[in-house]
């Protein structure tokens, strides 16, 4: 029994039994706390995944509108402006910064978009023709990119939460399935070892007592024989040592228990 299962390498002493008991208690508290944390995070996580799902769908629509506004530009400008745009891009007007949000002790970064208005690479694009469409298209795409940034925040939160939840769950499971059983095992082991020791002790004392008794009997017999040799009829002496032995036995029992 005590050999089966995993247990901590401790000496089965009363002191370590105490340690183990407090460890078990700690593990149980930790387990319930982590479990609650994991639940809170999972709740949040589910919320986020739901929002990601929604946002991804929304993105589909927003990007479609944006793509359509680009089609309008192509229509109005009457040609391809792609290359020119690519070449005149110099400084990002649209940028993001990152801030943190604390969710149940986990720092989730969130992107926040901002524009640097002084950077305007395309102010003159479509000057002769279609400029208004170009500007409108820029606005539409800016809005679309904002949606994308929002989605990216959610997604980053998702990735991080996913990681965190995995770690927390791993801990919960480790406590639940490894640490607690192992501590319990150890306690059981210590208990059984201590019981074993008790039984051994008991048995040993019993043996000692028996030996003593036997020795006494032998000694008595020898004495009786001696006496018999000297005085053939004297049986009252047998009771004397026995009464003494009973006293001795009581004393021994006190020691044991």
């Amino acid at each position: 029994m005590s050999g089966a299962g995993d247990r901590e390498p401790v000496f089965p002493t009363r002191q370590s039994l105490g340690t183990m008991k407090s460890k078990l208690k700690g593990a149980e508290t930790g387990h319930s706390l982590l479990k609650r944390k994991s639940e809170a995070l999972t709740k949040r996580f589910r919320e986020i995944t739901k929002r990601i799902d929604e946002a991804k769908r929304k993105m589909g629509r927003v990007m479609q509108i944006a793509a359509f506004s680009l089609a309008e530009v192509t229509y109005a400008v009457g040609g391809d402006i792609g290359y020119q745009i690519q070449e005149s891009a110099k400084n990002a007007r649209f940028r993001v910064r990152t801030k943190q949000e604390n969710v149940s002790g986990v720092f989730l970064p969130a992107f926040e978009s901002y524009t640097k208005d002084e950077n305007n690479d395309f102010g003159l694009t479509g000057l002769g023709k279609g400029g208004q469409q170009v500007q409108r298209c820029r606005e539409t795409y800016s809005r679309a990119v904002e949606t994308l940034v929002e989605l990216a925040s959610l997604q980053t939160a998702f990735v991080i939460l996913d990681e965190v939840i995995k770690v927390v769950n791993r801990r919960v499971n480790a406590i639940e399935h490894v640490i607690i059983p192992r501590t319990e095992n150890t306690i059981k082991y210590i208990n059984s070892e201590l019981d074993e020791l008790d039984r051994e002790e008991f048995y040993r004392l019993k043996k000692v007592k028996n030996n003593k008794q036997r020795d006494n009997e032998i000694a008595e017999k020898a004495e009786v024989e001696k006496k018999g040799k000297r005085q053939d009829s004297d049986k009252e002496n047998e009771d004397g040592p026995e009464a003494k032995d009973v006293l001795g036995e009581e004393e021994d029992q006190d020691v044991i228990f």
Binding site: N120, G123, L124, G126, L127, G128, K129, G131, Q132, Q135
Partner: peptide, 23 residues
Amino acid sequence: RRAINITLNSFGTELSKQDRKKL
């Protein structure tokens, strides 16, 4: 058409009125 468009599209850009007139 070009003159009108250029004017409309140059609002809010770095194109100055002199330069605009040249176009």
